[in-house]
Design a protein around this nucleic acid. Sequence first.
DNA 1: TATGGTATCATTGTATACAATAATACCATA
DNA 2: TATGGTATTATTGTATACAATGATACCATA
Lengths: 231, 231
Amino acid sequence: MGNNELQDEVTDKYSLRGRVFNRIREDILEGKFKQNEELKETIIAVELGVSRTPVREALRQLELEGLVNIVPNKGAYVTGITAQDIKDIYSIRSLLEGLGARWATANITTEQIEELEEITYLTEFHAQKKHYEQVLELDNKFHEILYRASKSKQLYHMLSDFHHYVQRVRKITLSSDTRIVKTNEEHKKIVEALKEKDADKAEALANEHIMNTVKNISDCGLENILKQADE
Amino acid sequence: MGNNELQDEVTDKYSLRGRVFNRIREDILEGKFKQNEELKETIIAVELGVSRTPVREALRQLELEGLVNIVPNKGAYVTGITAQDIKDIYSIRSLLEGLGARWATANITTEQIEELEEITYLTEFHAQKKHYEQVLELDNKFHEILYRASKSKQLYHMLSDFHHYVQRVRKITLSSDTRIVKTNEEHKKIVEALKEKDADKAEALANEHIMNTVKNISDCGLENILKQADE
DNA sequence: TATGGTATCATTGTATACAATAATACCATA
DNA sequence: TATGGTATTATTGTATACAATGATACCATA
């Protein structure tokens, strides 16, 4: 069956290119670069103390991720994320998380289910203590395990990308106590469905789970979340 | 509303890097490179009459597309596509085409609908004459318009990628006369739903349309389609 | 002053040179 | 012969040099 080595990240952390890539990506996602800001190779290179080569390679990759827009012979410009992008991504993610849960139903191991249960249990603890960092971390892990359990390289890849992409938004939505509790309840229900091997139910729940997240985002005022970057 | 300039291709055709990128990508998708084959920068560079720089940039991009696997300080290896990947992609695409059709219902212009109708009409003609090249071309156009009409940069991007990714398979499935006729019937129904502004119907039909394609592929024997590359 | 053209500069695109790392071959030794 | 270590080679990673392209400023002319 071949490919089981679903890695955490395609981009290696140790080469200069990898580091430059991650750095620029984070800076865009964190909003440190303004929309349409020009990213000049030389400036970035000097700033990071490297030559233009790794910077160029990183920018070309970011273009493929849709985070920068490269105009040949002119330059690289930050594409950034609009409120509409986020909404679209959540809609897409909702469908794909559902599909992932469906496929996971058939493929998930008992160890993985136990891991998921442990996560929901731990989340309860940290939620009470208002350890938001840990809650976010556990949320990451929960979904990561689910993605892996789907046993689909393609789906795993897409969902991981999305997950990363909306990181900034998630940081904020998972700072609301009521949302954390609700999220965890939803996670638990998904685990139940997985244990019962009920694919339809798992799909529907996972679907709904993401949709609820979107609703929560809208309530927070997505525009405001993004706006803080535009100063 | 900003980004309306959904381009055909991210990668520019005129720079060396762009050409190298497209070339290697096609060669992988066409099956000219074997699974796990090592892609040495120097060899490709010499072969295409360019230096290593554009080759490197292209390989890094292909890594992000998931077509090659780069091991730091070692080399780039062809990932290729397995039968399972194709099946997964079609499942994912089915959902997303559905979503695209749903969104298109709200956003499609009368001009675009007319274009779609023209395409289905022309397809009938070329199908009778067994002009398979043109049929494929028209099929491309049909979906392309639909993707654009969804007015979602994100969705457009993903669907275009997929569409390209499974090009090789589509070439074969769209060489069956009965499938071509069925495909066109399905396209027509989708257009009808769009005209009626019936989002649910459009989504369901688009969904089903892709699923039918998968079924057809399985009937053709997907493994055999892919195998021809492995010699 | 307004316009058009040219020279200059800034920036990207590509090639090449050098450094670092991994693979291989070869030899010495048991 | 089998094994372990070292020298050599091949290949990637990074930096820099040069070429091509686009932007800008300045001047001449109407």
